[in-house]
Design a protein around this nucleic acid. Structure first.
Lengths: 147, 147
DNA sequence: TCTACTTCCTCTAGTCGCTAGAGGTTCAAG
DNA sequence: CTTGAACCTCTAGCGACTAGAGGAAGTAGA
C-alpha cells in the first residue's frame, strides 16, 4: 500500500505522469484514502513498471495499451505481441539509419568549417545548399530531442 | 514572384507549414497581392530552403532561428554556428547510441520468442521485468516516431 | 495537540512542430 | 462570366508529457 509519491519513487515514473496515465486510461483508477488521496498496491506497481519499461523500449502508449491487453490474457497466442515488437524493431532500425546519415553530414560540415567569418562558413553554406550534401538525409527525423 | 503554393512546390515545405513559420517569426511577412494573398520573391525561397534543410538535419526551430541570424551577418565569426552544429552532432550521436541499445534489446526479445501463448511469451516477460535485459537502454528515446 | 512542512489534490495551460478542418475570399483558365 | 482550384483566417488537435495555481490532506517533531 503506497501513496503516489512512493509509487513514483519505486518505479521512476514521475507523479504527474502517473496521474496522466490514469487519465488516459492505461492505468486503473486506484483506491483512495479517506481524504481522497490515491493508494496503490503491488498490482499497480507491476503494471506501471511494465509501462515504463515498454516506454523505454520506444513503444507508444497505444502500443502499450495493446500489449497490456495481451498480457492480461495469458492463454492467447502471442503472435500479436510479436508483431508489435517487430514493427517497433523495424522502426528503430529506420531511425538509426536516418540518424546515421545525419551524423555523417553534420560531421562533414564540422570538419570543413575553418571557423573564420560567417561569409565563408561551411556550415552556413551547407545549410543554404542541399547539393553540397553527399548522402541522402531525407528522413523527417527532426524535432524529437530526447530530454 | 510566386504564390504560397508555388513556393511550397519548389521547396517541398507544405503550405500550412510556411504560414506557421511566418507566424512564429522565422520567416518574414511577405508582400501581399491586391486581394491579400501572399507573394514571395527569391529571397524568401532561399530562406525557406535553408530552414527546410536545417530541419532535415535535425535542428530545432530555435536553433534555426539562431543560425539564420548568424547567416544574415556575414562578417561575424562563425564560432557560434560551429557550436550549434557540434551540439547537434553530439545529440545525434547520443540518440544513435540509445537507439542501438534498444535495437539490441528488441532483437533479443524477438529471437527468444517461441510464439506460444502469452503466458510463456518472452516479449511480455521481458517487458514485465527489466532485469531480463542485458544492456542499459535508459534513454528517453520514446514517443518520437518519424512520420 | 499544535504547528510546520511535505505531499497530495484538481484544474488549466503550455511544450514542439506541425496538421486538419471550418467557413469564406481571390485568382486564373476557359 | 462561370467554375474550380488555390488562397485567406481562425481554432483545435496530435503525443506524451510538464508546469503552475490554489488549496486540502497527511506526518513528524515539540
Amino acid at each position: 500500500m503506497f501513496s503516489i509519491g512512493k509509487l513514483s519513487g519505486s518505479t521512476g515514473v514521475k507523479v504527474p505522469t502517473i496521474r496522466y496515465y490514469e487519465q488516459i486510461g492505461i492505468l486503473e483508477e486506484p483506491d483512495r484514502s479517506e481524504g481522497g488521496q490515491r493508494v496503490y498496491g503491488e498490482e499497480a506497481k507491476k503494471r506501471l513498471s511494465f509501462i515504463r519499461h515498454a516506454r523505454e523500449l520506444g513503444f507508444s502508449l497505444d502500443e502499450i495499451r495493446e500489449l497490456l491487453d495481451l498480457a492480461d490474457d495469458p492463454n492467447q497466442n502471442c503472435m500479436a505481441a510479436y508483431e508489435i515488437a517487430k514493427r517497433q524493431l523495424i522502426e528503430v532500425r529506420n531511425r538509426i539509419a536516418r540518424l546515421t546519415a545525419l551524423q555523417g553530414e553534420l560531421q562533414r560540415m564540422l570538419d570543413q568549417c575553418s571557423c573564420n567569418t560567417i561569409g565563408t562558413c561551411r556550415i552556413i553554406q551547407v545549410l543554404s545548399d542541399h547539393s553540397l550534401c553527399t548522402s541522402e538525409h531525407l528522413g523527417t527525423e527532426a524535432g524529437c530531442k530526447a530530454s
